[in-house]
Design a protein around this nucleic acid. Sequence first.
DNA 1: TGCCAGGCCCTCTTTAGGGCCTT
Length: 185
Amino acid sequence: MKPMVVFDFETTGLSPDEGARVTEVAAVIVQDGKILSRYQSLMNAGVHVPAFITDLTGISNAMVQSAPSSKEVMRELCDFVGPLQIVAHNASFDKKFYEHECRLSGRQLPKHFACSMLVARRLFPNSPNHKLGTLVNVLGISHSGQFHRARSDAEMTAGLLLKIFERLEADYNISHPTHEILMRL
DNA sequence: TGCCAGGCCCTCTTTAGGGCCTT
């Protein structure tokens, strides 16, 4: 199968239209049932991190103030992603931040995003809900125990993607899943 | 005055509304 990039943003809020910015990004490249490589960085976008975000993520103002600039991180992220196709959990959220940060950094906008949450709703309808943390527990995906940090969330989403591939092969006889198949489910 | 994200999905739908999920 072609490799895909699974990534996750931590941010200061829910919408860039309200001034929220990215505080941390992580991305992993997945191919043939394995994580091939990883990228992770805190990001200094020059904005205040609200206290409730620090409580949620553990990411503080001091941490982002000593981090590389948003422009530098977006350059590294776009170089890491390259032409690969992208997967994220609740991809509409990450996509709007990706587009916003690319626009601010003068980078090329990403292409289509496949959404592991939408696919999981189709393939795992009996899960009590389709939050990433719930799916990880229901499907027995190994994890570090840390949530709401970009690297751990990206790796859990990658684990979810591999479970999705297993289900596609077992139930739909799809042994070579593509990004297009994920987008159509 | 009152409201305040937003894209996607589902259904008691389509001339709409509410829930989910992300930080």
